[in-house]
């Protein structure tokens, strides 16, 4: 039996979600229509409102419907430390770790020389202006440990060097619970290059 046009439209719409295939999209659609019309209304309202009102924080470019996000507004955050990450999810991941209390800048991607994603696409001018005008004592480059993440970190280092005394790159190496014999050679190489003295 074919679904009616509206149901088909709903099922197709669910498929834009990551990890949702034809089967689960159908299950979601029928669940909402059969058992939870109120939930469906709430969902559609929330989706509409969020997709229309959520934009980027003017200071750090994280997703928010306000001009400035919670982190940028908070008086408890250390404004002299700036951590640069690729995506908003990276901010949430670092926040969960509980080991950082400074401010952020979200690139919304990374430099990708073969895809033509360059400094303009990442709004690096905004970042440069911010670093020029604020009193920042340390910049932490927390781009991904991919080759493109490295290329991005290197470029940022060159660009921001004149404006601050200290630029650091997050360490990457052996994961917690990692056994050396199962770790790939490039990760192990990084771990060795970034070794620290025990005190």
């Amino acid at each position: 039996m074919a679904h009616s046009p509206l149901i088909t439209q709903l099922i197709d719409s669910f498929r834009c979600l990551p990890g949702v295939g034809a089967k689960s999209a159908q299950r979601m659609a029928y669940h909402l229509l059969e058992r939870n019309r109120n939930g469906a209304r709430r969902l559609s309202h929330a989706l509409r409102q969020a997709s229309e009102e959520v934009g980027h924080c003017q200071t750090c470019r994280i997703l928010t419907e306000y001009e400035q996000c919670d982190i940028c507004q908070s008086p408890k955050r250390d404004r002299q430390t700036l951590c640069i990450v690729e995506t908003p999810s990276d901010v949430y991941a670092i926040e969960q770790s509980g080991s950082y209390h400074g401010s952020y800048f979200v690139l919304m991607g990374h430099l990708s020389p073969l895809d033509g994603i360059g400094p303009q696409e990442l709004h690096l001018d905004t970042l440069k202006q911010r670093v020029e005008h604020e009193d920042i004592s340390e910049i932490i480059l927390a781009t991904n440990a991919t080759v493109e993440g490295e290329a991005t970190a290197h470029y940022l280092m060159e660009m921001l060097k004149p404006f601050t005394n200290k630029i650091t790159r997050i360490a990457h190496g052996v994961p917690l619970g990692g056994e050396l014999e199962y770790i790939d050679s490039s990760t192990l190489g990084h771990a060795f290059n970034g070794r620290q003295e025990l005190k």
Binding site: P113, L114, A151, H154, D184
Partner: peptide, 24 residues
């Protein structure tokens, strides 16, 4: 992995990207 990796950074990394694009 079959051998030690090339250690590229900065300009040499961007040069290597150029080689890859030519080959692509």
């Amino acid at each position: 992995s079959t051998s030690i990796n090339w250690k590229l950074s900065g300009k040499s990394l961007y040069c290597a990207y150029y080689l890859n694009e030519l080959l692509l």
